[in-house]
Amino acid sequence: MAFDFPHILSMSNLSREAMEFIFETTDRFREIAGRPIKKVPALRGKTVINLFFENSTRTRTSFEIAGKRLSADVINISKSASSASKGESLVDTAKNLEAMSPDILVVRHGSAGAPLLLSKMLKARIINAGDGAHEHPTQALLDLLTIRDHKKNIAGLHVAIVGDIAHSRVARSNMIALRTFGAKVTVVGPKSLIPQEIKSFGVGVSYDLAKCIDQFDVIMMLRIQNERLGLTPFPSLREYSNFYGLNLNLLKCAKPDVVIMHPGPVNRGVEVAPEVADAPYSLILDQVKNGVAVRMALLYLLGGGENL
């Protein structure tokens, strides 16, 4: 197939066929990570700007490594370095960057829809690296790839997404992607963190992790994002951890071949007990590894041709 998506903004734009194609391309880049010289000249002369209005180490680094392995010139701009801290509007910031002719902008922003807004106003290709509580498409792609590495078929799997569903862009992108591949999805968490309308994503809902943990093939734990919550919708981290944290005791009831995932960074002892995070069935580091390859694939696929 020809991959003719100008931007990667939301998983809802990507068909199963397109995702399969991304995975296939990713496989080529995984091979490169094993080489002595982990660099190819594919994006030589292209400029990738990582425009991060929110703090992020993992995703930003992952995109940076991906771009550099493709020989692109990668420039990182964080909120404090940009003029946003001086009151410049998002569109002005972006227009000023565009005057320097970047080919791809990787955007993380606290406002849902910010990457879409930029894609409408700028010529550069846009990759959404997380926008508010909306989506985080590259995370979903690397998550699905990681699941596929361990479970072959995604269709028919029962996947739990556990935690702060309301404020999670990782949950939204994963729900869409997993449903597209025919997985069964159940979101689990305190009711105050699960919007009623979440069912429109075609997922089941449970407020009791202990009761349903035996059903899942894959358990994705979400990070409790204290920085994003206003009034805390649960009484304390301790109580949250008691009911929705994953520990060895609870895992005894899970399927023997269950795998555990987490988009990171992990709040050890809150969402995931340290022994669980480090256990062989934990795929947390595989996720990180796949992250670089998926992002290489996307940068490669978007980097073709002249600026459109």
């Binding site: 020809a2 496989d27 091979e31 000249p41 594919a42 980097g303 073709g304 041709g305 002249e306």
Partner: peptide
């Protein structure tokens, strides 16, 4: 060997070529 990542004509194509396995 797949040579697409090493081509000297990326800029001319509007979409990137399909990559095959280098093994």
């Amino acid at each position: 060997l797949d040579i697409n990542l090493y081509r000297d004509d990326f800029a001319q194509s509007s979409t990137m070529p399909v990559l095959r396995e280098t093994k």
